[in-house]
Amino acid sequence: MPLAKGIEDFDAGRTAPDVTALDFANLLAHKDAILGIYRGDPSFLTRPYAVATGHGGALRCAPAQANALFAKLIEAEVPWMAFQVDRYFPEWSDVTFRSEAGEPALVVLADRRKDRTFWDGRNPLAYGLIDLTLYFVHLLNIYVPNAPVLKNVYAVNVHEDAIGRQNESHARAAVEKVVQRFLPASGDDGALRLRDLVRLIKADLLRPAPRLNRGLAFEQECMNRLSAAGFEVRATPASGDFGADIIAQKDDLSYAIQCKDTSKPVGVKAVQEAIGARTHYKLDFAVVCAVAGFTDAAVELAASAKVIICNAEQLARRLDAV
């Protein structure tokens, strides 16, 4: 999957935008729609959107390539007019574009009419929105694979007083150590990326609890995801399951999977049960798949006992990555 490499290539040497809290909340609100576009066509991540000099000295980008991506963002109802992209990417404000053979002016579907041209020669919103969403996906590409660890690192190190005021300086420092290899060595750019990663962590921790006690429905969801990814799966007996809800196999590897749909982070007991199931069924790996994440003790035990921990969306990818 070229997602990580594509974003790294695009983001190399680029300055992080100083995104306001309101605009970041807007990105989070449309996260699934934005990710859906890039997942549907990963080539959008690596296309050249940089400004170049055209015929006659006119500055131009690649309208034919950007048209499709910007149209996708509009079709996904990402509210392009709500973002202050001219603040983040002022370089677009002074770029003048002109139509050339085979490269028409940027046409978008802002008002659902294909016969209108949005580009007025100086408006940065179209290309600025592309830059902003690419930066957002770059952050998610760091956060998502490390989410269980980052959430626990933050939660353990944030300090709260008796009336609920929080001091997150220690938490930010702890998170920075974990993601240090993804950040610039020094300067404001690294600080902005760290701040936005902390925003992702806090938003994830504050998400409303999912529907509770789905029981067999959650197990079935996990089985469906694994089956779609090419795993052979079977459910264990409803009683006497010895700590595993699902047995999965693929590529000569086998997994004992404990599914936990709870309102609070899963503790060490579930990890211990998965370890017991791995031993009882004589399987290769123990897995705990949880809706609400894991306690610090559970993460520590899982690491030392080589138990895979994840949520339903990560389940198949984590097992395939073994």
Rank of each mutant, 00 (worst) to 15 (best):
A302Y: 05
Q220K: 15
D241V: 11
D161V: 10
A292P: 04
D161G: 01
D9V: 09
A110T: 11
K31H: 13
L197F: 05
Q249F: 03
I201W: 06
E300P: 00
V78C: 03
A52F: 07
E160V: 12
E77V: 01
Q166R: 14
N146H: 03
V299N: 15
A21C: 04
R318K: 14
E77C: 02
L283H: 03
G6E: 09
V51P: 01
F83V: 04
A12T: 09
A316G: 00
C259M: 01
V233S: 05
F97Y: 11
P208T: 15
Q249P: 01
K250Q: 10
Y143D: 08
A248V: 04
P124A: 09
P17A: 08
L69D: 12
L206F: 09
D320E: 13
L69H: 11
E8I: 02
G164Y: 14
A50I: 02
E273D: 14
I7Q: 15
V178C: 04
I34T: 08
K250N: 12
D204A: 12
E176A: 15
G36A: 13
A298E: 09
H170A: 15
P2H: 08
A312Y: 01
E168L: 05
A66D: 11
L35Y: 05
A147C: 12
A228K: 10
G128P: 14
A82T: 14
L59S: 03
I275Q: 07
T15P: 06
A298F: 00
D23W: 06
P145S: 02
G243P: 04
P79I: 00
P145D: 06
P79A: 06
F10R: 07
L226W: 02
L132H: 07
F24N: 05
R165H: 15
I163F: 11
D86R: 14
Y281N: 09
N67H: 15
R225F: 07
C61G: 06
V149C: 08
D320Y: 01
R87V: 11
D86G: 14
D23Q: 06
Q249A: 15
F136S: 06
F294T: 07
D131H: 03
K72V: 04
V291R: 12
A235E: 00
E8S: 07
R122T: 09
G276V: 04
D41A: 10
A62W: 10
S254F: 13
V266I: 08
S169W: 13
F97N: 13
L27V: 04
Q258N: 05
L125E: 13
A235L: 04
S169D: 15
A248K: 09
N123W: 07
K260G: 01
P124Y: 02
D189Q: 14
L73I: 10
L69V: 12
Q314N: 11
F182A: 15
N123V: 00
A64P: 02
P148M: 05
P42H: 00
R199K: 08
A292E: 08
R112I: 10
D204H: 10
S227C: 02
E300I: 09
I257R: 00
A297Y: 03
A228V: 02
D252K: 04
S186L: 14
A173L: 09
P145G: 07
P104Y: 13
A298M: 06
G57L: 05
A33V: 07
N224L: 06
S99V: 07
